[in-house]
Amino acid sequence: MTKIAAIQMVSSPDIERNLARARHWLGEARAQGAELAALPEYFCLMGRADTDKLAVAEAPGDGPIQRMLAESARELGLWIIGGTLPIRDGAGEKVRNSCCVFAPDGSQAARYDKIHLFRYDNGREHYDEGRVLEAGSTPVTVQAAGGARVGLSVCYDLRFPELYRAGPPCELLSVPAAFTYTTGKAHWELLLRARAIENQAYVIAPAQGGQHENGRRTWGHTMIVDPWGEVLGCLPEGEGLVTATLDTARLAQVREQLPALQHRRL
């Protein structure tokens, strides 16, 4: 059994402040016995404009955001799923929205670049990540705490179930997010529980949750869901964390009593 923690933040345009708050909550997760902790999407920066992330984008493996994650993992002896940060990987103007995973020795164990880019317009709210982001193309899994295989994804990826079956079955699916209040209220929990049920896996979903200095409001409701779709913990709004135990016996029980993964035909 492995204790895991999902951290909720209300990040600001101030990177140093955000990193300090992230480090605080990672420490709290470890103090509560977590072996793996996950941060939300854009834990490091919720800028006043989409283009703000271009100015702070880091090169792969280098920069203050990645150093904080690596140092925290090493100092705390903790697996860290580092939410997302902007990575400039190439000569183009756009950047990747990247989730970097760090092992307890401080080494980077994996990096996933968000594949599906969010676009939404209901006449009042307008978002188009493709203006500044370049989409990734490769699904990524990593073997992490307790030997669990973790499938990496980010926010809007949650709406594309085929991503979560692109490789071998995972014990844990990670979904760091910054869902809008509007779409989160309608779909967040529904989609998380669906992904958990259909993949018979735990889901860890750390989120941005509250009113941000840039005027944006995010849905929050950071949660951890078990393979039967039961919500094991949820934080509706504000900074904090939720913890749960990834129980391999529970996972095996669900997969044995309803062997849906063995029944797949497509």
Rank of each mutant, 00 (worst) to 15 (best):
R21F: 03
L26M: 10
G27H: 06
E28K: 13
E28Y: 02
A29C: 05
A29T: 02
R30T: 00
A31E: 06
Q32I: 00
A34V: 02
L36H: 05
A37E: 05
A37K: 08
A37V: 05
L39P: 06
L39G: 09
L39V: 09
E41V: 02
Y42W: 13
Y42A: 15
C44N: 14
C44H: 10
C44R: 00
M46T: 14
G47F: 09
A49D: 15
D50R: 15
D50G: 13
D50M: 15
D52L: 06
V56M: 10
V56C: 07
A57F: 07
E58N: 06
A59E: 15
G61T: 05
D62A: 15
G63Y: 02
I65R: 05
I65V: 15
I65N: 10
Q66K: 01
Q66S: 11
R67L: 15
M68E: 14
L69W: 04
A70D: 11
A73T: 11
R74F: 08
E75G: 12
E75W: 00
L76K: 04
G77Q: 09
G77I: 01
L78R: 04
L78K: 04
L78D: 00
W79G: 09
I80P: 09
I80G: 08
I81V: 15
G83R: 02
T84Q: 04
L85D: 06
R88P: 00
R88E: 08
D89Y: 03
G90N: 10
G90K: 09
K94A: 07
K94M: 08
K94H: 09
R96P: 00
N97Q: 13
N97Y: 04
C100P: 05
V101P: 03
F102E: 06
F102S: 01
A103T: 01
A103I: 02
D105T: 05
D105R: 01
D105W: 00
G106Y: 00
G106A: 03
A110G: 05
A110K: 03
R111F: 03
R111I: 12
R111K: 08
I115K: 04
L117E: 03
R119Y: 14
Y120F: 15
N122F: 04
G123E: 13
R124H: 15
E125T: 12
E125W: 08
H126D: 13
H126V: 15
D128W: 13
R131N: 12
R131Q: 15
R131T: 13
R131H: 11
L133G: 00
E134P: 00
S137A: 14
T141P: 04
Q143C: 13
A144K: 03
A145T: 07
A145D: 04
G146S: 07
G147C: 12
